[in-house]
Every structure is written in structure tokens, then in C-alpha cells.
Design a protein around this nucleic acid. Structure first.
Lengths: 129, 129
DNA sequence: CCGTATCCTGTCGGATACTG
DNA sequence: CAGTATCCGACAGGATACGG
């Protein structure tokens, strides 16, 4: 399936490219990046605490995000057999290297917010609804 | 390897944080990154050509993506008044700096695909069903 | 406290058809 | 060639309720 427009492109290795795209898509998620940032800053963090620090994230999305990140080997989930339950999350070495890679994007966004907003305003003035 | 050494994240302004998140969300899009990569590699590219080079992207999504990127000041759209129409896209300076920032993530993904797939396989074996 | 399960709505995104 | 317009299925993701 997926017979789409623009098929057949002279790329070197479509398999590797697809995998990289997949990894990027998974990892470049909004919540993934925020969780990554929180864990870099705070080290080991509990579930609810992680939710608060991440901002307005629903419990559902937080669960999904940490689960996917654990599956990808980015974080480690530690369950303490106590009552009430205590679960802590921390980055793996792989997670730290990813955070390092994303650091560039994060600082870029911070540094260029004003330029982007200016560009948007100019565009919207140029192309009104 | 590893050796993370992360400088602590400076500010704590929720407004700025929201904006950064917004920018990240916009810019970390799958198609945005692919278009970015193609334009870095090929310089100035026409619409259909861009579609082919980007891989399996529908015309609709390509239009949306380039429009949003133009609005954000990442690319420049040049219309040549000829028949048949000829429209070319190229990166702005801002676009190039973004591509540079993403370069780290891209190479990270390439370098760690195998580790991620191994982690996923291990996780799925550990947590079946 | 740490989740899972369910419902429900908005948005994403592909397919198709048409214009300058 | 370079779009625009429209229909529509799929799914992300919030709100809520419940369980270990």
C-alpha cells in the first residue's frame, strides 16, 4: 500500500532513512523532550513529581511517554516495593547522550523565539486571511 | 564514553517556556526535519522535486509544511513568473542555523539506531503481549 | 501513590478532483 | 507545474472513573 504521490526517489538507502525518520519521530515528540529536560535537571524523579515538573501533561500522556522512553532504553523505571507505591525514573546513558544532542535545538529555540515571532507577524501582515 | 557534563538550564519563566515548547513542537515535526535536510543538501529546489526528495509525502502535507516554514522565516519561496510555473524554495540564514542545531539529533539517531532497536527487543521480550 | 480503562472530541493526514 | 478544495478515516490526547 501507500502508493502515494512522489514515489520513487533516488535516495541511497531507504531502509536506514526510514529507521532514522522513525527514531526521530519517536524522539522528537513534545512530551519526550520535556521529560528529557526535567530528568536532566532533577536526576531521579517520582511519577507525580515528574508530571508537575513537566507542566500541564495529562496522566495518560505521561504514562505513555515514560513507557515509550523506557522501551527505547532512554530511561530506567525503578519500583520500590513499599506502601504507598514509589516509582522513580532516571535517564540511562543513552538518554543522557540524547539530551546532549537536543540541547542544541533547545538553545536554538530559546535564542530565536523573537526572530520567529517577528517572521510570523510579518508573514501574517503580508498574507492576511 | 558518555561524559555528559550538562550546564544547568537557566530560566524558569513559564511564558518563555511555553513559547519554546511551541517552537519545538512546530519545528520538531517529521516533515519539517526532512524538508530541512533536503534543502541543506540540495540548496534551491522546486516544489515537485522537493516532494520527490522528501520521500513519501502527500502534496497536501508538503504544501502545509513549506507554508509553515516560510511563515516561521525558515525558508524563502521564490515564484518565477513563467509558463509553466516555477517555484523554488531555499533556506534562510535562520533555517541554516536550525539545521545545524538538528544535525546533532540526526547523527545521534543514526548512531544509536541499533541500541534503540536492541532496547526495544529486550523490553518486548521482558514485557510480552 | 501509581497507574489502567473508557469515552469522546479535535486534529492529522491521505485520496481525489479541479484551476491558473 | 504548483498549487487549492473537499471528503473522510484514523488516531492523538484530554477528562473521568476505577483498581492495586
Amino acid at each position: 500500500m501507500t502508493a502515494v504521490a512522489f514515489q520513487s526517489y533516488p535516495q541511497a538507502d531507504p531502509r536506514v532513512d526510514a529507521l532514522v525518520t522513525d527514531v526521530i519521530g519517536r524522539v522528537a515528540d513534545k512530551w519526550t523532550m520535556l521529560v528529557l529536560e526535567v530528568l536532566v535537571e532533577h536526576g531521579e524523579v517520582r511519577f507525580t513529581q515528574l508530571g508537575r515538573l513537566t507542566g500541564k501533561i495529562s496522566q495518560k500522556m505521561l504514562t505513555q511517554t515514560v513507557r515509550a522512553m523506557e522501551r527505547d532504553g532512554l530511561i530506567i523505571r525503578t519500583v520500590h516495593p513499599v506502601v504507598p507505591p514509589k516509582v522513580e525514573y532516571r535517564l540511562t546513558d543513552l538518554g543522557y547522550t540524547l539530551a546532549g544532542a537536543f540541547c542544541g535545538v533547545w538553545t536554538w529555540a530559546e535564542a530565536n523565539i523573537e526572530r520567529i515571532e517577528a517572521a510570523r507577524a510579518a508573514f501574517d501582515a503580508r498574507v492576511p486571511c
